[in-house]
Nucleic acid binder design. Structure first.
Lengths: 192, 192
DNA sequence: CAAAAACTAAAAAAACCTTTATAGTTTTTT
DNA sequence: AAAAAACTATAAAGGTTTTTTTAGTTTTTG
């Protein structure tokens, strides 16, 4: 059900998508058709809404990730693909511009945000580390792999690219995961 | 031989590496032990030196790239690896901070710079395009591949990472090329 | 009760001025 | 002939005040 809190958060996200963090609370109430009084009866501040959004977003990713990691049916490569493609439904928070704005205007929530974000990628690092030790993954620099993946995934999130190239975000991230895992060469004979 | 012009450019690069674009011409002459008069007899302005540096840097990359593309001994994958790893000896220009500063303080040379830079990656795109048509490369989004590669290579150039992880730049770029080509999985049985 | 509108305190942005730094030139010295 | 030093015009940085914006509150209206 669309509770009032949910509607507020949805509107908040929508405004973020359009204007970054620079929308006003008046913009927000106008969008969802409630009064400011109602808004402030549900949340105490703009920062609080942001914080709740961050929490919800990462809870979703964490949940997906944990499910994948604990799934004994999956092979390590499958888990890696799963973790890489586990993006949240609210993709705003992955946008670089939003990153910068949160960092600047909401340093308190930024700190929390950055910590969780790094943590999420840390799961991938561990997975790759294990993979290398098991001999499943080539002996490459694990941090380099993670950094590459991180940047690739993030770069897709800055709107421009995937709009301009008319490739869906889900598709793009999936392709990225495949490239990281299998490379771009198509047939075995082209390898090595 | 170390002509005076070369010494100036070397000093210019050294200053850039240390202070970005914010070094003074006095810093520069002090570093290489010449007078400002001599400096300005060789170059008409700071911007001109930058421009020459840009030209030289990309001429070097272009040269390497063309050699690779025209080498009939090389397979397409080998060419791709070659093009990706064809970084110039002066790596400053690949640094993101320098990017931003040139963009801001030298918009004229930035324009030129950006154009050549994109052009260079365009060569990789064409190569990949051909590869896909030949069936050597999997049917992925070619622009996505190029963007991924570009960002990965660039990310390694921002000092921090490869200093902190004590991996040489050449090594890092080589690993990136390998990952793009072959992926991270070590043995064939782990693939697919 | 909740929307609409009016309000306020605080902060961000804009406008303005002052000072400093520096690219490029000229003069002096070696 | 080139370095060193002094110089200037200009632009960037820094500081200050004014104006505008806006988060959050309070009052009014339906």
């Amino acid at each position: 059900m669309a509770t009032i809190k949910n509607r507020i958060i949805e509107g908040f996200v929508k405004e973020m998508e359009i204007k970054g963090m620079k929308f006003t609370m008046d913009d927000l109430v106008r969008r969802i058709g409630i009064s400011k009084r109602t808004l402030y009866e549900n949340f105490s501040s703009k920062a609080e809404i942001l914080e709740v959004l961050i929490d919800e977003t990462f809870a979703e990713v964490d949940d997906k990730t944990q499910r994948i990691l604990q799934d004994t049916e999956l092979s390590t490569p499958q888990k890696i693909k799963g973790v890489i493609t586990a993006v949240p439904s609210h993709r705003v928070l992955y946008d670089k511009n939003i990153f910068e704005q949160i960092k600047r205007f909401y340093p308190d929530q930024w700190e929390k945000f950055a910590e969780i974000f790094d943590n999420d990628w840390e799961e991938l690092r561990v997975l790759i580390h294990q993979g290398i030790q098991e001999g499943i993954i080539a002996n490459l620099d694990e941090k380099l792999i993670v950094k590459m993946t991180m940047e690739a995934v993030q770069s897709v999130h800055d709107q421009e690219f995937y709009i301009k190239n008319n490739i869906s975000l889900t598709d793009a991230v999936s392709q990225i995961a495949d490239i990281i895992l299998f490379g771009i060469l198509s047939t075995e004979k082209n390898r090595g």
